[in-house]
């Protein structure tokens, strides 16, 4: 089990990432803060505890891989990479600007530490299946992690990938579903016939877990369980879109919206940490 102080440390890292996100979107005057905040705790656990990566050697071939399939949430990934030393936090000021290494969605050729270009929804799991298959073929021990939104699993390719991962028993593949209940247009329930999510993955012969996606201890334990499974593993992380800022939580207008100066000040007060703008 995780020690309590480590848990607190990861929680504070997650809040630091949240503040970075708000500052980035405020500075760029563009971006998707709500979807980024809902996965901040998962990203913090991955980048500050789980991933075997080397900021000095981003292309290290034995590294764990991470794919942010819901690429519009990339600000939280950029913040994590900066805080892990892949590039300076100052780069975050260039978000979405011409010539910046930080594109509107993740770009594996422009940003150190991005393992796969992503952003058009639904594709990340297939890309992860390819990477996990390469590990099997090359007899590498790395783990491939994918984070998808609950909305994006409406895409058909997700289920093509789910089938394929199951066929090849990709126990080196761990999928998080950011189950915040919202998608761009409205609630998942209103837009699609997706629910319930869990039985679908069970039917595809995946190892399935449901956790509180904001509880770092649960996230860590779920990864431990996933690694013991002989099957590919999905962790359905129940989350709150915009988690961490009261004015943003469960308000879907924050899917893509820029905080004003006052809202930034609230974020600074709520989340603490350093000002980097």
């Amino acid at each position: 089990m995780l020690k309590n102080d480590k848990s607190i440390d990861l929680q504070s890292k997650a809040n630091q990432l949240r503040l970075d996100v708000v500052q980035m979107v405020h500075g760029a005057k563009d971006g998707h803060p709500g979807p980024a905040l809902s996965i901040a705790d998962i990203i913090a656990v991955l980048y500050f505890k789980e991933l075997r990566i080397d900021a000095n050697n981003p292309q290290w071939e034995d590294r764990d891989r991470f794919i942010l399939s819901k690429g519009h949430a990339c600000t939280v990934l950029y913040a994590a990479l900066a805080r892990r030393g892949f590039f300076s936090i100052d780069e975050c000021r260039g978000l979405r600007s011409l010539g910046s290494m930080l594109q509107g969605h993740p770009d594996m050729n422009k940003t150190p530490g991005i393992d796969m270009t992503s952003g058009s929804l639904g594709n990340g799991l297939s890309l992860g299946v390819g990477i996990a298959l390469a590990a099997k073929y090359r007899k590498k021990s790395y783990t491939t992690y994918v984070v998808m939104g609950d909305g994006e699993i409406q895409e058909g390719i997700v289920w093509e990938a789910a089938m394929c991962a199951s066929k090849y028993q990709l126990n080196n593949l761990i999928l998080f579903i950011d189950n915040n209940g919202w998608q761009s247009g409205d609630s998942i329930e209103q837009v699609s016939g997706l629910l319930p999510i869990l039985p679908k993955w069970q039917a595809f012969n995946w190892h399935c877990q449901t956790i509180d996606g904001h509880d770092v201890t649960q996230i860590i334990n779920a990864i431990d369980q996933a690694k013991k499974s002989p099957q590919p593993s999905v962790i359905i992380a129940d989350t709150v879109k915009g988690k961490g800022l009261a004015y943003m939580e469960n308000d879907n207008s924050w899917h893509k919206r820029v905080p004003d100066d006052e809202q930034l000040a609230i974020a600074l007060k709520t989340l603490g940490g350093d000002v980097n703008e």
Binding site: L127, G130, L133, A134, G156, I157, E160, C164
Partner: peptide, 22 residues
Amino acid sequence: IEVGIAEQNAVAVAAGLASCGL
């Protein structure tokens, strides 16, 4: 690598494989 009747997955899986040097 046989992905079945799933061309989108075939192409994206290939991208993943290629990203690892295959």
